[in-house]
Amino acid sequence: MGSTGLFLVSFLIVHVSINSLIFLNDSGESFNAGAHFMAHNPVIRIVEIGLFAGLIAHIVQAWVLTNENKKARPVGYAMVDGAANSSWYSRSMGVLGSLLLIFLVVHLGNFWLPTKQAVFAHEEHNTFENMKQVFSQWYFVLLYLVGVIALCYHLLHGFQSAFQSLGMNHKKYTPSIKKFGIWFSIIVCILFAAMPLTMFLGIIK
């Protein structure tokens, strides 16, 4: 879980960086150039296959682990005071992940699919216009905000948890890893959340 999770985090860094180009507010010129590069660069195309494989591996691992964990406690407790010993989001990674998966299906339908169609039709896809169109509808904005909040909490636990699973827990370095994980989760998610919001409110044109 940890290694596939960190691999997916590396994708998030690229994704949020390129998308943040919209904040230059240059009618999407820089952003479209970035999107064009990502859609046509052969190395990125190969990495994309690896990304899908990583995502599927992450989901399959979660599925297998969840089933094993359910079997490990066939009779549950009548009363559980989970808040006394752990954070709610560390105990809800499956629910948060499922929310993310639903979001991801819609998200790929909104952007990945039109981009692919354009590439196959040898047309230039205006991803910025695509974004403006999707984020002019309030229900998409709402869904994206829910997706980003789920991502934030998923990362809040997942980032530092990955290092622990990979055997990295050290008195000197772990506090910094945890701190970095918190800032990373919050900053990435604020940037992602700002994209639909600023477009919906007409700040980014």
Binding site: L65, A72, S86, N169, K171
Partner: peptide, 28 residues
């Protein structure tokens, strides 16, 4: 038939002897 660790840290918080989950990372 024990389950898998998802690093919630509940064990460490409830351990009467204060055993740290640093040990779990070491075992990994």
């Amino acid at each position: 038939g024990f389950g898998n660790c998802t690093n919630t840290g509940a064990c460490e918080a409830e351990c009467p002897k204060g055993i740290s989950i640093e040990n779990i990372a070491r075992m990994n």
